[in-house]
């Protein structure tokens, strides 16, 4: 064992205790069932929870809905984050630190506070609809709708997109753009053929982070969905915290984890293929 591996030990030990052990417990619980008329786990392992999950179209719908929210949130975050990141890197000057710090606020304040703030912005009597009412405009239903949840999700996870993009864009040499411009490339071509391809690592990293965060999010859909919209997170909470069917909730969590794991593998393979192509 090379001595340098010792550097990893503290992190590994911590992960083993706070992540791996509960994870193994979760995985094993998902193969258990509760005895009839009891909340205690019955002896023996079975696939019952997974069969129930796959057999009921309700859960498939929830899965597809959660996937759809994750994809849409990722795309919206990318659209919003690219110009912001570009501004921070090229134009912000001395404001850069302040802007980055502001971007970090939603991340460090946790999911609950921003969601509660959003609740007051979007509520039927909230700031947005209150202002519309005052101006005699029609009100819009945001709480309990996909639109409301998506606004909340983009708000919550935008920093996860902005930060990797800032990182990548900051490392792009300015001469590349100047060279492209001096050869007569219009701004759109510079974006399409120079900046975006070179920013790809940041785009991929940000997209993976936002996608995974959205897929497993609980607070935002729970608070802004008002119980009207079931996502993976809210259904798992319902099963674990209210129905008290812990094995089934574990199975739901396992499915979410496997989906995220598969996504990571797909991205790893995909980026390796792209690199190989580029090398040829």
């Amino acid at each position: 064992m090379p001595p340098s591996i010792l550097l990893l030990l503290p992190a590994l030990a911590l992960s083993a205790v706070v992540f791996l052990a509960p994870f193994v417990w979760l995985a094993s619980t998902s193969f258990r069932t509760q005895a009839e008329g009891s909340l205690l786990l019955a002896d023996g392992l079975s696939f019952d929870n997974y069969i129930r999950l796959l057999a009921d179209p309700f859960f498939l719908e929830v899965l597809l809905r959660t996937l759809a929210y994750s994809v849409i949130t990722t795309i919206l975050s990318l659209i919003v984050a690219l110009p912001v990141a570009r501004f921070i890197v090229t134009r912000a000057g001395r404001l850069k630190g302040i802007l980055l710090a502001l971007m970090l606020v939603p991340l460090v304040s946790g999911a609950l506070l921003p969601s509660l703030g959003m609740l007051h912005l979007m509520g039927p009597l909230g700031v947005v609809n209150g202002a519309s009412r005052l101006m005699g405009l029609p009100t819009v239903k945001l709480l309990g709708t996909p639109t409301g949840i998506l606004i909340g999700l983009v708000q919550s996870f935008l920093p996860l997109m902005v930060l990797p993009l800032v990182n990548t864009l900051a490392r792009l040499p300015a001469d590349l753009e100047q060279a492209a411009a001096s050869l007569g490339a219009p701004a759109t071509a510079i974006w399409r053929r120079v900046i975006l391809p070179l920013a790809m690592p940041g785009v991929v990293a940000g997209s993976v982070l936002v996608f995974c965060a959205t897929f497993t999010s609980f607070v935002t859909p729970q608070v802004l969905g008002q119980g009207h919209i079931a996502t993976f997170g809210t259904v798992a909470y319902q099963q674990a915290g209210q129905v008290l069917d812990w094995p089934f909730a574990s199975a739901l969590a396992m499915v979410a984890l496997v989906m995220i794991g598969l996504l990571q593998v797909a991205i790893a393979i995909g980026s390796r293929l792209i690199r190989r192509q580029e090398a040829q």
Partner: peptide, 19 residues
């Protein structure tokens, strides 16, 4: 009632909330 919670939760989600 508690023995039915799991089924009822799904029925509520589907039939009352129309999810």
């Amino acid at each position: 009632v508690i023995s039915q919670r799991s089924d009822w939760t799904q029925r509520w989600n589907k039939e009352i909330l129309g999810q």
